[in-house]
C-alpha cells in the first residue's frame, strides 16, 4: 500500500467512476456486434469493447478490494442501480449511427489516453499497473477513431454531414470529462487533474477535425451530472438489458 488508508474511500470512488466509464462504453460498443457496417469494423468495435470491459474489470476489482465489504467485480457491475453508476453522460448515450459511435470514440479516447498515460506514474501502485496496460490499448483506440473520423468527414457529402451532425450533438457532453478530480487524490499524486489535460486535448482534437474538414462546435453550455448519479434516460434502459440475467437469476455463473 503506497497510500495512507485515509485516502481509500476517495480512491475507491475514483476506481468506481473510471470502471463505470469503461464498462458503459464497452457495453455500448458491444451492441454493434452483428450490426457493424463491414466485417473489419465488426471486429474492431468488438475488440475495443473487449479492451474497455477488461479495464473495467481491473478497476472494479480494485474498487471492491478497497471497499472491503465482500462485494466483487460482478456485484459492482450487475447489482448497482442507475443512480449508483457514476459514468460520464457522454458514454451512456445510445450508440447512434456509425458516425455517432466514431465521434464519441474519438472525443473520449483522445481524453482518456492522456489520462491513463499520466496515471502510469500514479503514487498508487495498483492504479499505475492498470494504467500501464490501459494506456497501450487506448493509444490504438485513438488512432482507430481518428482515422475513421478523417475518412467520414473528408468523405462523401453524406458521411460528412453525419459526422458533423454527430459532433454538434455530442459536443455538449465533452465538458464533463474535464471536471476536477478529488483534490486530495490529485494532491497525493494518485491521479492527474482532468482540467490540466484540456489544452492538449484541444490541440489533438483540432488537428484531426481540420484534417477531417469538420467544424469544431463552439463551447457552450455543458451537460453534467453523471458523476453524481444523475443520468440521461438512456442509462436505465441499458442497465436493464445488461443486468437482466443477474437480476433474474441471482448468483448465476457460467
Amino acid at each position: 500500500m503506497s497510500q495512507p488508508d485515509l485516502l481509500n474511500p476517495a480512491l475507491q470512488a475514483l476506481a468506481l467512476r473510471r470502471a463505470d466509464d469503461a464498462l458503459v462504453l464497452g457495453h455500448r460498443l458491444s451492441e454493434w456486434t452483428g450490426h457493424a457496417p463491414m466485417l473489419e469494423e465488426e471486429m474492431a468495435l468488438a475488440n475495443l469493447a473487449l479492451d474497455l470491459i477488461g479495464q473495467s474489470r481491473a478497476l472494479y476489482a480494485l474498487a471492491a478490494d478497497l471497499e472491503g465489504a465482500g462485494r466483487d467485480e460482478d456485484a459492482l457491475a450487475y447489482l448497482r442501480t442507475e443512480r449508483e453508476y457514476s459514468n460520464l453522460l457522454l458514454l451512456e448515450l445510445p450508440r447512434g449511427d456509425f458516425a455517432v459511435t466514431i465521434v464519441r470514440q474519438f472525443l473520449y479516447a483522445s481524453f482518456v489516453d492522456r489520462w491513463w498515460r499520466a496515471g502510469m506514474t500514479s503514487t498508487d501502485a495498483r492504479l499505475a499497473a492498470i494504467a500501464a496496460k490501459a494506456e497501450k490499448e487506448t493509444a490504438y483506440h485513438v488512432r482507430h477513431a481518428a482515422e475513421w473520423l478523417i475518412r467520414l468527414g473528408d468523405g462523401t457529402a453524406e458521411s460528412h454531414s453525419r459526422a458533423q451532425h454527430a459532433l454538434d450533438r455530442l459536443w455538449a457532453y465533452t465538458g464533463e470529462m474535464f471536471e476536477p478530480e478529488d483534490a486530495e487524490l490529485v494532491a497525493a499524486g494518485v491521479c492527474v487533474d482532468p482540467p490540466s489535460l484540456r489544452l492538449a486535448w484541444n490541440h489533438d482534437v483540432d488537428a484531426v477535425l481540420m484534417a477531417a474538414t469538420l467544424q469544431r462546435p463552439r463551447d457552450g453550455w455543458m451537460q453534467t451530472g453523471g458523476r453524481l448519479g444523475q443520468h440521461t434516460e438512456h442509462l436505465g434502459h441499458m442497465l436493464a438489458e445488461m443486468q437482466h440475467l443477474q437480476r433474474s437469476h441471482p448468483g448465476a455463473v457460467w
Binding site: G54, Q55, R57, K133, A134, E137
Partner: peptide
C-alpha cells in the same frame, strides 16, 4: 500477466 486487459 495478461497481454491485454480484456484478453479472453
Amino acid at each position: 500477466t495478461p497481454t491485454y486487459s480484456g484478453c479472453p
